[in-house]
Design a protein around this nucleic acid. Sequence first.
DNA 1: CGTTTACGGTTAACACCGTTCACAAACTTG
DNA 2: CAAGTTTGTGAACGGTGTTAACCGTAAACG
Lengths: 255, 255
Amino acid sequence: MGTLRQPTRRERQREETYDEIVAVSRQLLAEGAELSLRAVAGRMGVTPPALYRYVANYQELVDLVAFEIDKAATGRFRAAADELPEDDYAGRLLMSTTEFRQWALANPREFGLVFANPVADANCIRREMLTLASSGHLLTGQMRALWQHNHHPIPAVDELPPAVRDAVTDPVIPAETEGLQPDERGLIWVYMQGWTALYGVVALEVFGHMDPRVIESGEMFIDTIRNFVPRVGLAEDWPRLEAMVRARLADSSGR
Amino acid sequence: MGTLRQPTRRERQREETYDEIVAVSRQLLAEGAELSLRAVAGRMGVTPPALYRYVANYQELVDLVAFEIDKAATGRFRAAADELPEDDYAGRLLMSTTEFRQWALANPREFGLVFANPVADANCIRREMLTLASSGHLLTGQMRALWQHNHHPIPAVDELPPAVRDAVTDPVIPAETEGLQPDERGLIWVYMQGWTALYGVVALEVFGHMDPRVIESGEMFIDTIRNFVPRVGLAEDWPRLEAMVRARLADSSGR
DNA sequence: CGTTTACGGTTAACACCGTTCACAAACTTG
DNA sequence: CAAGTTTGTGAACGGTGTTAACCGTAAACG
């Protein structure tokens, strides 16, 4: 066990530099500019090679800001859920989901960076950070809370295909497995299904590979959720949930 | 009506140059290299500025080869369907779908170029070419053939949300609307739903944002299809179809 | 047929990009 | 104070997209 020391002066300053790198990068992205090493250095008032004291290469810079963007965005998703009472598990899950979609459409570059960036090697740094992705933890956590409340039917682990069984038993993808018994891991599979469906709509919408009128209305997004909702035992709750989702869509797009 | 002239010598040579640009670009991509204007020019034995006589900028080069890649890939999807008898509409649709997934995993760069490339302006050239995307036409055509054979229930156009109704009535997204009555356009919506789901799995798999074991097994892909199949009236045919899909997955991944 | 025009290429240059290396200043530590 | 580590600089290399001025040649036209 490492004894925790108080951070020395240098370590503190180094941490601040990291923060500034991320801050400047996000600022750059927000302005619609490309994320480039030189641009970041320039805006920090430093020469490009200096950044190599902090990141090994460009990809690592991308990974760094992607991780932080995911963390920040997760804050928004959580805040959206927190507008609802704590025991409205279904509503909270769908509010976070809806906020995810709205965030992606409003920040396409950031979305591309975090969720549409190929991970080249299977054993690179990105893989680990993928496991730590906070947005994944938030959604799995919300789904777990929902299930622990209404105990809707989930697939039995034994009946899952072998590869899937392995994957849900020992996940490399971000998942909140704490408090989930081994025989309850079928829920992770349900989560993966939901995430896949959600990702499909949102990515198509963000990339503009969909009819603009459908994107603007959000109907495909709603349809996708409607299709998923029964799998978490919310078929009967759907009318209420749909109204909430539509309200949030109208609200945050009109703002 | 324009009188069709025989192509003059210049036009013919120009067309050949376009073909060479595409050929060289695809060759470059296949070797795992980046698609760059300079690299294409270099391999053509020409200086980079010369390419500007053929494309206005880099993005237009990308669009050009993306269009051709889509056309070539569609050939593979169609060939996969053609291995089945002409009246096995369900099987043909699913074979093309499966081949799409296999192609995407085997050619991630090409997939990214064609299907994960943001279209910036809503009224740029890419929008038009999106409308002409041959893969979209193939799949809608196969779904239409399937429906015209088994007439499974489809949503009534009147009951669709207004935005969706507009989109399916006058599609800007590639669709085979010929031979489809205005009140049968609900089928287009079903197609969009299916495409969205399919896109979700495949994109996640290609980008590596999914558990490697699940990707390798293809179980999420199969699960996604299974979830969609009832919507085109194939619930009872699923066991047969699943076997066919699994066979193709095993075949083309082991090769 | 000769003249004119437009096309398809060149060279040179600009402004970016990621990345490496040798070196110097500054700060921490013994 | 001296030694050593950390952090930044300047110069340079090879790569990118893109623009400008220029020029020979092939097509088009009177």
